[in-house]
Design a protein around this nucleic acid. Structure first.
Lengths: 147, 147
DNA sequence: GTTGATTAAATTGTACACAATCCAATTGTA
DNA sequence: TACAATTGGATTGTGTACAATTTAATCAAC
């Protein structure tokens, strides 16, 4: 028995719990990230650099769904902390190559325990987590390549 | 055949697709929110005000998972645009009451089409959407009342 | 080979988001 | 009734996010 405005109820939105849940979980990383002096954005950036060893800002942005306006200051901060090196590509001077430093690699060891600790914070069964993961990537995959 | 660092791969995180998906969908609201001159945060704030007609900043913050540091400027902006009124409660001067104005009510009519338009942007079946909604609220519900 | 388009980063401006702190109003308790 | 503790908002400072613009390098035609 709803009126035509029911669609505007906050409880009928799918985006809102997504938005709220994302923020709440990111907030819960803080106690684990503070000791290694990283923000969440810096953390996921380091995750990619740990995997790739060497990557352009463009490729990093594609993986993280972030543009240069966000990444430039984040990467400068990470360079300042000594975890990455920023240098132009010899092949194509337009590309900025991000490289992992020894300190950056060292940091990886300290970050190693974080995923397990955070896992306990999300009260879903393995099946539910898998389903959520699947649905989220289904949405992300449905968006056109170039945003 | 993974090593002990596999847990730090971006593709093994549950939070990351949540974070990315939230941002990507919020971004896709822009074309629909621009014509009525609202940002996403202003939009969800108005959603609650449309439902409640009158609500304190505290209650608004509880519903939206936002604190006064975020809401104060958002509400001042909405007041400036003429959609809400901000006034102290007579009962308890600490409480700031947010009230819907006539212009605010008028805006609701123009916002009415947005949820349907956005719905088409998320390529999930009704069942999948319902499941996603359920899982997200399960996570949100598992967090302690006071953050 | 010059010029027009494209591309990758950086920059600028606006708007969150939140921790931490501050302040005024209210409440609880001795 | 004093007065300490609590509460609701506001403020300040830092760090994203992203649109829009700019700049420099490269590419594509011709």
């Amino acid at each position: 028995m709803g009126d035509k405005f029911d669609c505007l109820k906050i409880s009928n939105q799918l985006c809102f719990p997504l938005y709220a849940c994302s923020k709440e979980i990111v907030k819960r990383y803080k106690p684990y990230l503070d000791p290694i002096d990283l923000t969440y954005t810096q953390y996921i950036t380091m995750m990619v650099v740990w995997e790739e060893k060497e990557i352009t800002v463009k490729a990093l942005g594609d993986k993280l769904f972030l543009d240069s306006g966000t990444l430039t200051p984040v990467l400068k901060k990470l360079e300042q902390k000594g975890y990455v090196k920023r240098s132009r590509s010899k092949d194509d001077e337009r590309n900025l190559i991000i490289t992992l430093t020894d300190e950056g690699l060292e940091l990886k060891k300290q970050a190693c325990e974080i995923p397990a600790k955070m896992g306990k914070c999300v009260q879903l069964s393995p099946d539910e987590s898998a389903k959520l993961y699947e649905l989220l990537y289904k949405i992300l995959g449905s968006f056109p390549e170039e945003s």
